Lab assay of single mutants.
Amino acid sequence: STGEEYIAVGDFTAQQVGDLTFKKGEILLVIEKKPDGWWIAKDAKGNEGLVPRTYLEPYS
């Protein structure tokens, strides 16, 4: 699937089932941008889950 690459600007630990845990500096592939501010993203290992958009910045 296609998506946009974003870099994590902080650590995030999953708070509920379906969230994706990530560390600062990780590159995430954003698959869907939901209007509530929680985006669906995939990490380098292929894990998929919800992430808070405030922790992400476009990666170029």
Rank of each mutant, 00 (worst) to 15 (best):
V9H: 05
S1Y: 13
E48I: 03
V51N: 00
G10E: 03
E48A: 03
T54M: 13
E32V: 06
L20K: 03
A41F: 02
T13G: 03
V9R: 10
E32P: 01
K45T: 09
L20G: 01
K24F: 03
G49D: 00
Q16W: 02
F22I: 09
D36Y: 12
K33C: 12
E32T: 10
V51W: 00
A41W: 00
F12M: 09
K23A: 12
G18S: 10
I7W: 03
E57L: 02
F12Y: 13
K24P: 03
T2M: 13
V17M: 08
P52R: 15
G10P: 00
N47G: 09
S1T: 11
G25C: 02
G37E: 13
N47H: 09
F22E: 00
D11K: 09
D11M: 04
P35S: 10
Y59W: 10
K42H: 09
L56Q: 00
L28T: 01
G37L: 08
A8V: 06
V9T: 11
D19I: 15
E32I: 06
W38T: 15
G25F: 03
Y6D: 00
D19E: 15
K23D: 03
A44C: 05
S60E: 12
Y55G: 13
G37V: 12
L29P: 02
P58T: 07
W38G: 15
G18R: 12
L29D: 13
L20P: 03
K33L: 04
K42Q: 12
L28C: 03
K42D: 03
G25W: 02
G18Y: 05
W39A: 14
L20C: 05
D43M: 03
G10N: 12
Q15D: 08
S60D: 09
L50P: 13
T21N: 15
A8R: 00
Y6T: 02
I27W: 09
W39I: 06
F22S: 03
P52E: 15
Q16Y: 02
Q16D: 04
K42C: 05
F12N: 12
L29N: 08
Y59M: 09
T21Y: 02
A14M: 08
E32M: 11
E4M: 13
Y59A: 07
W38P: 15
I27T: 12
L56K: 00
F22R: 00
I7P: 01
V17W: 01
Y55Q: 15
N47K: 10
K42V: 05
L20A: 02
S1Q: 13
L50E: 04
W39R: 01
L56W: 00
Y55H: 11
I40R: 11
T54Q: 14
Q16P: 11
T13E: 06
Q15C: 06
Q15A: 11
I27S: 08
S60K: 07
T2N: 02
A14F: 02
I27H: 06
T2C: 11
P58F: 08
G49C: 02
E32Q: 09
S60V: 07
P52Y: 14
T2W: 03
T54W: 03
E26W: 12
D36S: 12
L50K: 14
Q16H: 11
V51K: 00
P58H: 06
R53C: 03
W38V: 15
Y6V: 11
A8C: 04
Y6L: 04
W38C: 14
W39S: 04
P35Y: 07
Y55R: 14
V17Y: 03
T21P: 13
Y6N: 03
L28W: 00
L28I: 07
G25R: 06
D19Q: 15
L20I: 13
D43K: 08
A44I: 06
N47E: 10
I40S: 09
V30S: 03
I31A: 08
F12Q: 14
G18V: 09
K34N: 11
G46V: 01
K33F: 05
A44Y: 10
G49E: 00
G3H: 04
F22Y: 11
G3R: 13
D19G: 15
G18E: 11
Q15V: 09
V17E: 07
A14D: 05
E4G: 10
T21L: 05
G46N: 06
I31F: 12
I31M: 11
V51C: 08
E57F: 01
L28N: 01
G46C: 05
L56Y: 00
S60Y: 14
